[in-house]
């Protein structure tokens, strides 16, 4: 690795094994068993529907696992906001798959999105957090809501509270919950006790990125930000910028001296992600554009109504219209 700023205890295993993150594997399996039973109970059923008990059991299971992880390394917990957003995300995800009404399921999915945006913010991915709100909660979910409202039968007058049969009863909940939680147990055991070595790419220092962005650090911009910070006085001029050391060399009356790179010149998250996107994956952007175009064409072709284009059909239609009295239905004009 080499670049390991502020060497801490965690940094030694930064690129190493992800091992032993839980007090005891039994605790993990106990928690997951609780979670599986809870999820199984919470899935919609026709007769008895113990959804609240299921949700409580599921939450208890996840809580046991999180508690076990927290007790193992009490000094290296994630930010406390993780627990708030994590509980909201998992709880509303549970509600997405257990709520019998599709509209409510979609609304709970928006809640899951917003909670994971909070998690992204904790992980210092600001751009992706806001992109997620705009793209997912703003665009994709609205499309879902439109389709739900287009493609659901209107309830008849006498039974406003009717639900479709396929929404009320879920398909083989026991088998699905068991399979799902066996998969979860395998996944979590893999990364709690696994022995794979994580090959980390070299960590990116925000100041090091400045060296590859010459347009961002022109002498005028650097001096302007330095003056705003009060690090230089009138009459000093720019000599060189050293992104590796994080310093700027300026020439003053008493000769050259170095000052720290001003904070507002540092590469922010949006710039860094954009730079990585265009610098490392230029071909992927083109492919993503083609995929989106094809999806748009495909959606248009799939969802259009079948229109009869034959002249015969048009004639028949116009004859039918004139027999009824024209488009506007005024029968007096007809000869």
């Amino acid at each position: 690795m080499g670049s390991c700023p502020g060497v801490t205890a965690s940094c030694g295993e930064h690129s190493g094994r992800v091992v032993e993150q839980l007090t005891h594997p039994f605790l993990l399996f106990l928690g997951l068993a609780f979670g599986g039973v809870g999820l199984c109970l919470a899935l919609p059923r026709k007769r008895v529907n113990p959804q609240v008990i299921g949700a409580v059991l599921g939450g208890l299971g996840i809580g046991i696992v999180l508690l076990g992880m927290g007790l193992k390394n009490p000094e290296q917990l994630p930010n406390y906001n993780f627990y708030i957003f994590g509980i909201i995300a998992a709880g509303s995800a549970l509600r997405v798959i257990t709520h019998p009404r599709p509209v409510y399921a979609a609304l709970y999915f928006i809640l899951t999105i917003l909670a994971s945006c909070g998690l992204y913010l904790i992980l210092s991915a600001e751009f992706m957090a806001f992109a997620l709100v705009i793209v997912y909660a703003g665009a994709i979910l609205i499309t879902y809501l439109f389709v739900i409202m287009l493609a659901t039968q209107a309830p008849s007058e006498d039974q406003l509270e009717s639900l479709a049969e396929y929404d009320v009863e879920s398909r083989s909940p026991v088998v699905a919950a068991v399979t799902g939680f066996v998969l979860l147990a395998a996944l979590t055991t893999m990364f709690f006790k696994g022995s794979t070595t994580l090959e980390a790419p070299p960590a990116i220092q925000p100041d090091a990125l400045l060296a590859q962005m010459p347009n961002k650090v022109t002498p005028e911009k650097v001096m302007r930000s330095l003056e705003r910070e009060g690090a230089v006085v009138e009459g000093e001029s720019f000599v060189a910028l050293d992104p590796e050391a994080g310093t700027v060399t300026v020439l003053g009356l008493e000769g050259e001296r170095t000052v720290a790179i001003p904070a507002d010149l540092g590469v922010k998250n949006v710039e860094a992600v954009g730079f990585d996107l265009l610098n490392e994956h230029p071909g992927s952007i083109e492919i993503a554009g083609v995929v989106l175009l094809m999806a748009m064409l495909g959606a248009t072709v799939l969802s259009r109504k079948q229109v009869e284009f034959e002249e015969e059909a048009k004639l028949r239609q116009s004859r039918a219209l004139s027999a009824e009295g024209g488009v506007f239905g005024d029968k007096e004009v007809r000869p």
Partner: peptide, 21 residues
């Protein structure tokens, strides 16, 4: 500042839970 491995495990666990749900 690097994130510690236990904190990463928390996020991976939550991600696995969401995936299984």
């Amino acid at each position: 500042e690097p994130m510690s491995t236990p904190a990463l495990a928390h996020y991976l666990f939550l991600s696995a839970v969401l995936f299984v749900i």
